[in-house]
Design a protein around this nucleic acid. Sequence first.
DNA 1: TGTTAAAAACTGGTCATACCAATGCAATCA
DNA 2: TGATTGCATTGGTATGACCAGTTTTTAACA
Lengths: 242, 242
Amino acid sequence: MTTLFKPIKPKKISEEIVQQIKALISKGQLKPGERVPSERDLATMLGVSRPSVREAIMVLDAMGLVESRQGGGTYVRSLTEHSIADPLTGMVTNNPQLLYDLSEVRIGLESWSAYLAAQNATDEELAELEQLLEKMRRLAPTGGWPAEVDTQFHYAITSASHNTIQVHVLNTIHSLFKATIEVALFEFYRREGYAQLLLEQHEAIFSAISARNPELARQKMIEHLSIVKQKMSEFLVKPTNS
Amino acid sequence: MTTLFKPIKPKKISEEIVQQIKALISKGQLKPGERVPSERDLATMLGVSRPSVREAIMVLDAMGLVESRQGGGTYVRSLTEHSIADPLTGMVTNNPQLLYDLSEVRIGLESWSAYLAAQNATDEELAELEQLLEKMRRLAPTGGWPAEVDTQFHYAITSASHNTIQVHVLNTIHSLFKATIEVALFEFYRREGYAQLLLEQHEAIFSAISARNPELARQKMIEHLSIVKQKMSEFLVKPTNS
DNA sequence: TGTTAAAAACTGGTCATACCAATGCAATCA
DNA sequence: TGATTGCATTGGTATGACCAGTTTTTAACA
């Protein structure tokens, strides 16, 4: 009743661009960490000038939705980064005990991703998972695969949940891991010859998702990530030997 | 205190200008309704180009601190008339699909809380849950209980997970919920006489946690919160899971 | 042949300039 | 005196250019 009339305000071009990019992020068509087309490309795509695009990007930057690095490009940030990660990132580095909690939260979130993925994954997404799995099958006999392949596999599962918030929250949690010891932990697996076990677990997870079995997918993901939590405990007991 | 090193990021000129104008406004040297010097004047004053000034003004405009009218000039807005919230909050409120996603993520997190609580809850924490439950039993016949009691119950469960990160993450998600429509949704339950059903679900959750049965606690929490998601779907258009 | 170093191709950051459109003010005219 | 016209001001947009980092490609080297 009070808002029957919409304010008459000629919308600026840059505001329109802000709206469009925000919508793309909401819909998940622009995922966290993904790259936004260059200012020049966006300008030609939208049929506007570069300053207009720039003004939009500056606004999105100020809102914390994107991040620009000179020469590097513009990237989508996690929506939950400043509300979840910022207060935590300092705490985690000062208190390694929290890494255990963090890995536990990750189990909860990723198992939920697997659950949702088993419900919502498209055939294309299943094919992508299969492809990543195939790559791991090939590299397993050599002792393991690069950490980035592992990351891609887990990310693809979360992406298949078709839930924008889930993707952003998990991306935030994952960045906290990356900021600390994830890579070191992964290298640890390689040296200890865990490749075959990890591969089998990945196969089990993928198989459950393909079979559209949410509960099983969740269970297999919990088993898989519990290893991480376990190894984390061993790390936390021993002091760093660097 | 927690951050020993400052972030290494070259500040852009426009950001510097935003900071300056923001400071002038908060110091009261630029009062609401007052006019900001023209873009061209500001440019010469600060010794920068007009586009840089424009980018700054656009950011301040998006933040709701100033308002520009073509040909009219730029004016400082009164701080109270349009308080600015977290951009994520705005996106969620304007995006039904995100709201649905949010409730789904909440199910995943809270069911995990219930799972962990069933493993880690102390007797004191179980007693606290019992106490909250007793309060709900008393108030159920009157049609329901205050929303805050419900919040306390769920918070107590997450707290019993004994996981600092889990508490923080769920707090963030929950505040997002509260900032949007949780209260309205809860009032909806009261009017529709859901009190008895919700009470029974709470009893089931508590009972599973007391019995140290993580899987059952998780299952009961999922059932419980799925009602929220379901009601949400009725509020909105059926999600399409693009 | 494999590694490394130079260079070329982006990409964001900044600037200068020009023109359009809306506004506000003031001189002008009825 | 009051309404109107006209001009200067201001924000909105567009081009084009150059600088400064980054990334990728290429080419030289060991």
